Computed example of a mutant assay.
Amino acid sequence: MTATALSACRSLPYPDSPQYRDGGFRNPVEPKTVGWREMPAMLWRFLFDKPADTVPSTAPPVSALTQAQLLAAPEGTLVRFGHSTVLLKLDGAFWLTDPVFSERASPVQWAGPKRFHAPPMRIEELPPIKGVILSHDHYDHLDKAAVLALADKTEHFLAPLGVGDLLVEWGVDAAKVKQLDWWQSAEIGNMHFVATPSQHFSGRAMFADNPTLWTSWVIRSPSLNLYFSGDTGYFDGFKAIGEKYGPFDLTLLECGAYNPQWAGVHMLPEQTLQAHLDLRGRRLLPIHNGTFDLAMHAWTDPMERITALAQAADVATLTPVMGQTVDLHAPPPTAAWWRTASR
């Protein structure tokens, strides 16, 4: 860990963070999102008037995956597990982004958004994990049950400010937890990580006032430079990150759960493409789609729109089936898997 990183979890509040003020974490510019006057109508539509095509008619395809396959996979292998959960094999070890393995992205498992598909493998089947990389505290990104199941087989947990405190509160060994503010960095072996800005919000309870920070990540191995967005609206931070840390071999960018009403905290597909260009990305992997019903658009809409936009802009995309191993040094063509579950 570098001198710029916070080496230990700290209790609230966070007086040294420029992002912490007025009792919570704040974006530099207040983003466009649903106002309190719009909230009742939006909740009514979400609960009682959703289009039928926000969920697939049949489960999306999932490629069978074994630990032996992962151990034999080459350096630079990537596997989508669903939503924003991605397994990366870098520097001879395995890294997981925002691991969500529960049936529902919810504080309870009897209600809330339910998975369209099972993960490609169970946590107990995973090889040892070098590090878990967390973007923020929302239930579709921070799965308490998964974190606790991973705690013994994971060496490091990288988290934004406040999220690390949550992990320790849940029982994760504090020595494993590194929590960072924006622009702070950590070194683990030959891996270099930077917590970079994003434009979002936080809270695991109703009316929570941003008690923890949200972040995107630069993930740099000796042979690959990757960007993981977490959740974010489009903002000028992408250009700053691209200028400072790009170009990126691959951008893993959110594209899903969007709506013009909350475009300030979740990008529309056109903004996802622009973010990729701002970051100076070579290939784009759209994430935050294909697993949970979190908006009013058709569940296939994110992938249809972003792939069409990318093709028109001559941007190379990766759209692997969940569970498919992809060698990022020589990625194979990937197919429109979402169409098989929408017929």
Rank of each mutant, 00 (worst) to 15 (best):
A5C: 12
L6D: 08
L6H: 11
L12G: 07
P13K: 05
P13T: 13
Y14A: 01
P15A: 00
Y20F: 15
R21S: 15
R21G: 13
D22V: 06
G24K: 05
G24M: 03
F25M: 00
N27V: 12
A41G: 13
W44D: 06
L47Q: 14
F48R: 15
F48L: 14
D49E: 14
K50F: 11
K50E: 14
P51I: 03
D53E: 13
S57K: 15
S57Q: 14
T58Y: 06
T58H: 10
T58W: 06
P60L: 09
P61T: 12
V62R: 04
V62S: 05
L71I: 13
A72R: 07
A72Y: 08
A73S: 15
A73M: 04
P74V: 01
G76I: 00
F81K: 00
G82C: 06
S84D: 11
D91Q: 10
P99H: 02
V100F: 00
A105W: 05
A105H: 00
S106L: 06
Q109F: 10
Q109E: 14
Q109N: 05
W110L: 12
W110Q: 02
P113M: 06
R115F: 06
R115Q: 07
R115C: 09
F116T: 05
A118Y: 07
R122G: 12
E124V: 13
E125R: 09
L126E: 02
P127C: 13
K130P: 07
V132L: 01
L134V: 12
S135R: 01
S135N: 11
D137A: 05
Y139L: 10
A151P: 02
A151Q: 12
D152M: 13
K153E: 08
T154M: 08
H156S: 03
L158S: 03
L161A: 11
L161K: 01
L166Y: 09
L167M: 12
V168I: 13
V168K: 01
D173C: 09
A175D: 14
Q179P: 04
D181N: 09
A186R: 02
A186I: 01
F193Q: 08
S198Y: 04
S198W: 03
M206G: 11
M206F: 15
P211Q: 00
T212R: 03
W214K: 05
V218N: 06
I219G: 03
N225G: 10
L226R: 05
Y227T: 02
S229C: 03
G237Q: 02
F238V: 06
K239A: 15
A240Y: 05
G242S: 05
Y245W: 14
T251V: 15
T251M: 08
L253C: 05
L253T: 05
E254S: 09
E254V: 06
A257T: 03
Y258I: 04
Y258L: 09
V265A: 03
Q271A: 11
L273D: 03
Q274D: 13
R283T: 01
L285P: 01
I287L: 11
H288D: 06
F292I: 02
D293L: 07
A298R: 13
W299Y: 15
W299S: 08
T300V: 13
T300W: 09
D301M: 12
T307A: 01
Q311N: 10
P320E: 03
T325G: 00
V326S: 02
A330V: 05
P332T: 12
T334E: 05
W338S: 01
R343T: 01
R343I: 03
